[in-house]
Simulated scan of single mutants.
Amino acid sequence: MVRAVVATAWGGVDVIGVIDVPSRRPGPGEVVVAVRAAAISPFDLKRAAGSIRGDHESPPLRLGNEVAGVVTAVGPDPTGFEGESLAVGDEVLGHWLPGAQADELTVPAAMLLRKPAMLGFTEAAALLGSATTAAHTLEVAGVGVGDIVLVHGASGAVGGMVTQLARIRGARVIGTAASSRHERLRAEGVRPVAYGAGLADRIRALAPAGVSAAVDTVGTDEALTVSLALVSDPARIVTIANYQAAIAAGARALGPGPDTERIRSAARPHLVRLAAAGDLVVTIAREFPLQQARDAYTLLATGHAGGKVVLRPDRSTAGEVPETNDTAR
């Protein structure tokens, strides 16, 4: 049997639990992964609430889609994302893997990338969800050398990735965050600013020549209103949360679709290389044992975790392959 995090009913944090589910042998093109770390995200909370669900989904609903671990079994033709066959003992990471919050997972090999040895399991599991979203926002906003980018929610999991990738692209970054996070943002090369009344004026003082583009990761009315006041071209304002209002104002709203999958999928290898080289840092807010999934979701639901929240299965029950390279943190 496999321990898996589920929503036992449609609802909030109180419906999150851990149950035993049957294990499954790999079929053609599939592998079994002993999970070493699985990240959680606001998307998982929405699925638990039933606000995002498939036509035939009903509780208990397995949660999660971001994972890193070790291959423990393979089916015929286990070709990974990079086009090479995976084998038992390979360390891997992946994204968009339904039910990833478990101590074992049987998944298509094509969804998995090899985990570089210098990248820890926790960081690997927490990388792709936020980083691919961040890369997508910057691609759509057309951010490049010389731009000044306003990032709303710069200390969050996605916002932190946006700020780093924008700077890698040669842009300067102004980021909104609670004042308690400003010192950290300054150390990362971001000019922090407190949200709240007078935000637009505070940003104008930091960027008297204007703001080129804005990325909204929080979804507040303030974020959109201030962005529209400061960015001359609304098509360079991108939100991942405030969809209807943004579209009505001529801004860009990113959601599911063919373009989303194409852009984010293409970005994965590059993001893994950046993280492995230390050029892209995954901020981990806290790790929890898998059995404490409800506590992990409780922290996530506050909206102020300050980074990724990660579940760690008990390694003694997460497959038979010995732990390796988990000190690269």
Rank of each mutant, 00 (worst) to 15 (best):
R3D: 11
A4Y: 01
A4D: 03
V5R: 11
G12V: 05
G17P: 02
I19V: 15
D20Y: 05
R24Q: 14
G29E: 10
V31D: 11
V32K: 04
A34Q: 04
A34S: 11
V35H: 09
A39K: 00
A39T: 09
D44Q: 13
L45A: 15
L45M: 14
I52Y: 09
E57N: 03
L61C: 03
R62I: 09
A68Q: 06
A68Y: 07
V74R: 03
G75I: 07
G75E: 08
P76G: 14
G83R: 01
A87W: 03
L97D: 02
L97F: 01
G99V: 01
A100T: 08
E104F: 04
E104K: 12
E104S: 14
T106C: 11
P108N: 07
M111D: 09
M118W: 05
L119V: 09
F121V: 09
T122E: 15
E123G: 12
A125N: 13
A126F: 12
T133C: 12
E139G: 05
E139K: 07
V140I: 15
A141D: 02
V143S: 13
V149E: 05
V151Q: 04
G156I: 09
V158P: 01
A166G: 12
A177Q: 09
S179K: 06
R181N: 15
R186C: 05
V190E: 06
A207E: 04
A209R: 15
T217V: 13
T217R: 01
T225F: 01
V226Y: 10
S227N: 06
V231M: 12
P234F: 00
Q244P: 11
A246K: 03
A248R: 15
G250K: 11
R252A: 15
P256D: 10
P258T: 08
D259P: 05
T260V: 03
T260H: 14
R264Y: 00
R264F: 00
A267C: 13
A267F: 12
P269S: 10
H270R: 14
L271A: 07
V272W: 01
D279E: 15
L290K: 05
Q292A: 14
Q292L: 08
A293M: 07
R294N: 05
T298S: 14
G307H: 08
L311E: 04
T324M: 11
D326R: 15
A328C: 04
